[in-house]
Design a protein around this nucleic acid. Sequence first.
DNA 1: CATGAATGAGGCTTCATTCAT
DNA 2: GATGAATGAAGCCTCATTCAT
Lengths: 221, 221, 221, 221
Amino acid sequence: MRIQIKLSEKSYIKDPDTTDLGRKIVENSIKLIDEIGLESFTFKKLSKEIGSTEASIYRYFENKHKLLIYLISWYWNWLEYTIDYQLNNIKSPNERLKIAIETFSKPIKADPNFMHVDEEALHRIVISESSKAYLTKEVDEDNKEGYFRSYKRLVDKIAQIVLEINSKYKYPHSLISTAVESAHNQRFFAQHLPSLTEITKTKEDEVVDYIYHLVNQTIKS
Amino acid sequence: MRIQIKLSEKSYIKDPDTTDLGRKIVENSIKLIDEIGLESFTFKKLSKEIGSTEASIYRYFENKHKLLIYLISWYWNWLEYTIDYQLNNIKSPNERLKIAIETFSKPIKADPNFMHVDEEALHRIVISESSKAYLTKEVDEDNKEGYFRSYKRLVDKIAQIVLEINSKYKYPHSLISTAVESAHNQRFFAQHLPSLTEITKTKEDEVVDYIYHLVNQTIKS
Amino acid sequence: MRIQIKLSEKSYIKDPDTTDLGRKIVENSIKLIDEIGLESFTFKKLSKEIGSTEASIYRYFENKHKLLIYLISWYWNWLEYTIDYQLNNIKSPNERLKIAIETFSKPIKADPNFMHVDEEALHRIVISESSKAYLTKEVDEDNKEGYFRSYKRLVDKIAQIVLEINSKYKYPHSLISTAVESAHNQRFFAQHLPSLTEITKTKEDEVVDYIYHLVNQTIKS
Amino acid sequence: MRIQIKLSEKSYIKDPDTTDLGRKIVENSIKLIDEIGLESFTFKKLSKEIGSTEASIYRYFENKHKLLIYLISWYWNWLEYTIDYQLNNIKSPNERLKIAIETFSKPIKADPNFMHVDEEALHRIVISESSKAYLTKEVDEDNKEGYFRSYKRLVDKIAQIVLEINSKYKYPHSLISTAVESAHNQRFFAQHLPSLTEITKTKEDEVVDYIYHLVNQTIKS
DNA sequence: CATGAATGAGGCTTCATTCAT
DNA sequence: GATGAATGAAGCCTCATTCAT
């Protein structure tokens, strides 16, 4: 079986999934951003990495911001797909919520279905860089273009489970977006700013524990 | 009475609070970053704004990252000072927690004690840009330099109140850092990505309600 | 009847008048240069406009300079054809001169004989861009290639009428080339730099009046 | 005596006449544009020529278009100054007109008052490139900025003499702008497209003869 | 101490063009 | 004959920074 993540948002000029070079761009941009960070990342460095030219990359993405949006959208789509897959045939909303939270909170494992994407590296990028995709002065235009559709769909999907459990709870979307962002942040704090969290680098399932408890307690009536 | 916020972290080269030019740099960098965003902000534009030169600004701050750290640290210090002030003579831990959460969650009002700082603009900067201060490849070195001390002290202070209320709760620092970050995020989402939150632009005290409920529920034993 | 303007100068690689794509290139390049100006005009933008590719356009024209030369030559040929047509059976040299001057000085009307050419737009291009075709460092080579033959033939044709009227006048070609260039320039000035001319935007026949008087007076003995 | 041409239009960011580097930029840009033409001229090549960097040039001029405007304005100012100087104490309008036309039509001689400007080279630039300064899509904005003030003032000055001679003539500004542009064009045609003119390369005073006759005849009542 | 002048380095982007199908 | 893919080269511009006064 050959699965492909197809993004509804078109932050690309030319679909990178249709050519070899395109897939190389995706693969190596993940590698490179993970290594050197978004700030130092440039199309020139990427082109050197893949033995191509800046001009070629510009055929696929208008600029590095659009590429970042693509990568992050890919991640959210992949996560949604993974959650959907796991929720298959699970009826109990409580059980469904638990699985959903676990899936986005626990450490990511490489997914053999997508050869040219290193999900673990991409997860690190999402943790460190994803908020930069929207914390810009252009957020409203980008939102109009639909660039955050995947993230919003994922949050909504889990928020609906929350509502199944407690239809009276007033802030289901807020809670899930908080939980998702917090799962990233706490992992980052554990690595780099440990005084801000009790989560440790080593026992990484603590994040699941922390987030799951927080969500569950909050929606109790 | 003349109060001054003195930062323990020295992200500056020369204390901007000691000269006219220094205060102008602080005042106008807040104004300018708020207006055009951190990405477009440069020392050149700032120097034009204040009728000075890039070279002069370099006397105070090594680069815009250090300036950002200064501004954000100033904000955390000011917030801590404000919270301390409000907690004065309050005994009940529950009451103390409530006040602390309210202080960092509710909309900021200009503080007449600090003439050259527009706290409302600074708050918008903290919301949109503060995470960029640590989401970098240099976070560990910056942390070693103590650049995040103010934030960590504030989180710790509130986490201690949490522990007073429930000494068994395992993640007080995680919870408070989550709460603080979420207070920013939810406000940003309300403005720009409303599908991610139930908080609305208009009724801005909803953030307090949401965060307070979340923290309170979570630490119930 | 089906008339075709056949250019003696071969600034094209493949005659655009022989294929659909070729005619589309001509039609849309006129449209696009008129809209955005020669400087911003690129084969990429043109190819997007006509739903084709840069590579395809390169089959017809080596570069945008050659395309410009083609369009302008087309214009001069069309103008010559129009003048010839109007001079048919007119004997009096004075009358002939008058008609010739009127034809190149008065506002252009769309010619239904050439469907894929918008003569009014082309006239605006000739006004704004035609001098750029020869004001280059390559003018001598281009001239050797015969790229300005049409313009020179037109000027010569009218200069011959001048000589019929006054065979003693020393500068007939200078006068006609001045008149033609001035007809363009004055129209441009009327639109954009009105202090350089008494011609107004609205009463556009003033150009004819001005030019005709100038030529007539100058060749009086 | 030390004379300086001070331009009313500020197409520069920083006045090049105030520093050594600035004067070098002016001097060498004239040399280089004359040599290679405006199209091939870049700030990079110029910076190499003067042993400096692009960045330094950008401190003086926003782009090459602004630099061109500066050079051409300088030329018009210098020409106006030269004409004024020559008209000193001349009363007869006919005589004044003659001198004015001669001054702008005859070959330019180097002016020892302005060491860092090669007026002969600048004249060639004016001939080949000056129309490109206004034949753009930005002409209206540029005009609003006052970038063509010098040219317009010169034309107006000579047009006023025309009116002194014949106050009934309807197109004095048109006539003078035509005469000035034609003086350029005819010289260019003599050099590169000789079939468009009777002017020859060698006897360069023919231009004066041609233009003077044309103007004189045209304004006869 | 503040500033005016200058610059090295590199980012971002497009152009014009070629090659393979 | 037309097009999709790719690219080398260069243009344009700004950043962050230093030096001399």
